[in-house]
Each structure stands twice: as C-alpha cells, then as structure tokens.
Design a protein around this nucleic acid. Structure first.
Lengths: 220, 220
DNA sequence: ACCTGAACACCGTTCAAGT
DNA sequence: ACCTGAACACCGTTCAAGT
C-alpha cells in the first residue's frame, strides 16, 4: 500500500547481511496481515527495502516461503492445554485460535492448507501433542488422525467462510423465491447479533460444538 | 499445456459471435479440470483461440468469471433428494458430490468459497431446497443456516485437504520425535486402505458422519 | 556469500481501431 | 456489437556482475 523508494543500496555484497529467513518471515506475516494488500514477493521485497531477487537467496520460491510461514503459524496458534485437559476441551480454544490466525491471512489460507506439512518440525510437533492427547484419553487409534483432519478441515473451511460477506446466504434480490432460506437467514442473523457475534462466528461455534460431540460419540 | 497458435482471425467484428458466456464457462471448467494447468485468463483465451481481451466483453474480470463458474458448479453438484429424504440423509450424497466436484477444480476452490453468493440464482435456489428440508424436518429455525454453513465449511476444508499429499501428517523425517502421531497415522492409513479409500476420503466420511450426528443432536 | 540490476516469460486489464 | 492488437503496470524467477 505505502509506496517505498527503491533501495539506495549499491550493488555488491553488503558488509553485514541485510536479510535473514526470520526477518523475511516476519515481514511476510506483516504483509499478509494488511487487509487488501496483495501477497506478492515484489510487495514483500518493497517492505524489506530490497530487490525481489534477493529473497531467492533465502527461499527457493514463493511456495517455500509459504511453507516457512506455516511453520511459524503453528507457533502463533499456540498450545492450549492438550497436555492436561481432555482433547475435547483443549481442542475448542485451539480451533478458535487456529481459525482467527488463519483469518488474519486471507490471501494465503488455501496455500497454507494445501501445501504438504511433511518435514515441517513445528507442525509435526503440534500434531504430536494433539495425537498424544487423543491416545491418552483412550480414543481408538485408527480414528485419531481422521478426527484431527476432520476438525482441521472444518476450521479451514470456516476461516474461508469468514472471508465471505456476513449476509452471504441472504437472498437479497428475490426473497420471495427463497422463503425458507430468507426466514432461516434472518433468524440466524438476529440470534448471532444477540450474542454479539458475527453470523460466521456463530456458525463456527455451533458447528465446532456439534462436530466435537459427534467425534466424542464415535470414539466410544 | 498444449500450445495453441495465435488466433488467425483478422481484426474487426466477426460475422457471427465467436464467444458466449456459456462457451467461456464451459472452457473454464475444462481448463480447471486439467491437473496442473494454471487457471489464467490467458490460458483460457488460448483454449478458446481468442485474445485475452475478448473475454472482458463477457465478464468484467476474473472475479466475475469465477462467480459465474460457481453458479454452474451448483448445478453440477445436483439435487440429492432433499425434497423427499430427511435432511440428514440427503445431505450425505450432496456433501460427497460437492466435495468431489470441488476437488476437480483445485486452483479455484478458495476463490469459489470466498466470493459472495449473493445474487447467484442457482446457488440461492440450491440453499433454499436444503433450508426447506431442515424446516420441514422441524429443525430450530435459527440453527438452520449455521448447520448448513457448518457442513459447507467442512466440505470445503475437506476438498482442500484432499489436495494435500496422502500421507500429509506422516512424520517421515523423525518418527521417533512423534511416536503417537506415527502410530495413529499408520493405523489410519491401514484402516483406510482396507476400505479401499484414500486417507483423505476416509477422514471426510468419518468427519461427515460425526458432524451430522452432532448437528442432529443439537436440533432436538 | 549476499546483494543489485537487467532480462525473460509471463500475468490481468484498458482501450483504440477495425468491421 | 464483437473481436484484434498494442500498450500498461505489474508478476515470479534466473543469472551475470559487483563487493
């Protein structure tokens, strides 16, 4: 958004390194946080007062940069008591934090969701803590990963849903053609407003509770 | 993928229109179906043997094109007996068809999920049928839309999950650091293989069943 | 080793010009 | 009205050249 001047640095190796993977990732999150900002390497380079090609010294390409971001994303989501609380309690604040952290980075949700986690130590250790909680609580072993994947899929889908307009399912143009939807959408919107939540957040909380209840029942 | 020659057409209005919204949308789906093909207006124009700028005559921009695709996507998913079956039965084949239809168009899932549906008649009438089934079955009105949104979020997240590598959560590099995850991932993979399904599909079916069970319980 | 700077093959979008 | 063709402001990536 804010235009930056071209780097005033002259060619050649600087006396001390200007960049680092840490610095780049930090700036990448700051850029992704800016609403409406295009998440491009060029914009990232401008933010760092550097030429785009300099970034390729630290990340092979854009995909690898995003993979690096996901590792840090896991740290941002944080632990939420999987070590002490039962999985079905700890998973609620975890899912909330996961969704809102994803929601702060609209442009890259799909990329973050799709890219392989294999080999990202932070992500693996996060899943390990969660899987261990399920195991400890006696959840059937072959259903632990499906349960985690189901919750994660729901969270990611909900993060995307939160990006859509709040009255997304409202049949504004021809309410008469969709009477059931019109009534249901209005009732849901009012009910959400009473709780001081957006329609998307209310749907997320409702669905999360239902999903967890269903997963608990399937584990007995 | 397949290189096309530049349009041999000369400038000026052709005697009969070469393009139409229908033709463009059809080609757009064909392009999106091609695995690994970049979903760009330039590639779409090449497929139609037309200059990119010609597309702007039918769609204001890329976003509007994708919005048009979603309308047709709804038709592709199809009805699944919401008129006759209880919602919790009809929703299962609907969710399966929705997920696999989305899965056939990897590059645009996020865009399809995020763009507003407001004013797309096909989408609205689809939701109307589903909302009407919930109402008819006595589901609390203010929870109908949250339930639909929850299912849709799960489906979209699952479609994205299906694009990731099948052993996405497998701690290949250092299994010793993630023993619970390693065991759970192996058990899930074997269990899925026994049913002849991919790990992603098994997780989807398991999660869908759990979510629906939870939503049913929340509606009583 | 770490950056600039130039170059390459792309994008999406706008718009004049042709029929 | 419906297309081409040229132009514009961008991309991501590669690589030689500088220190």
């Amino acid at each position: 958004m804010t235009p930056r001047s071209a780097p005033h640095r002259s060619a050649g190796r600087p006396r001390a390194a200007v960049l680092s993977r840490e610095l780049i990732l930090e700036a990448a999150f700051a850029l992704a946080d800016e609403r409406g900002a295009d998440f491009t390497l060029a914009a990232l380079a401008r933010k760092l007062d550097v030429r785009p090609s300099a970034l390729h010294h630290y990340f092979a390409g854009k995909d690898e940069l995003i993979a690096g971001m996901r590792g840090r994303l896991t740290l941002r989501v944080g632990d939420h008591g999987f070590g002490t609380l039962p999985w079905y309690e700890a998973v609620v604040p975890w899912a909330r934090a996961y969704r809102s952290t994803l929601g702060a980075h609209p442009g890259i949700i799909a990329a973050l969701a799709t890219l392989p986690v294999a080999g990202e130590p932070e992500s693996i250790s996060d899943y390990e803590r969660i899987a261990e909680a399920f195991r400890r609580d006696g959840y059937p072993e072959h259903r632990v990963v499906p349960a985690i994947v189901a919750i994660e899929s729901f969270v990611i889908g909900s993060a995307l849903d939160a990006l859509a307009p709040d009255d997304n399912l409202r049949p504004v143009h021809r309410p008469d053609l969709a009477p059931a939807l019109e009534g249901a959408e209005r009732a849901a919107r009012l009910h959400a407003a009473e709780q001081g939540a957006s329609a998307a957040t209310a749907a997320f909380e409702f669905g999360l509770e239902a999903l967890i209840a269903g997963l608990r029942a399937a584990g007995r």
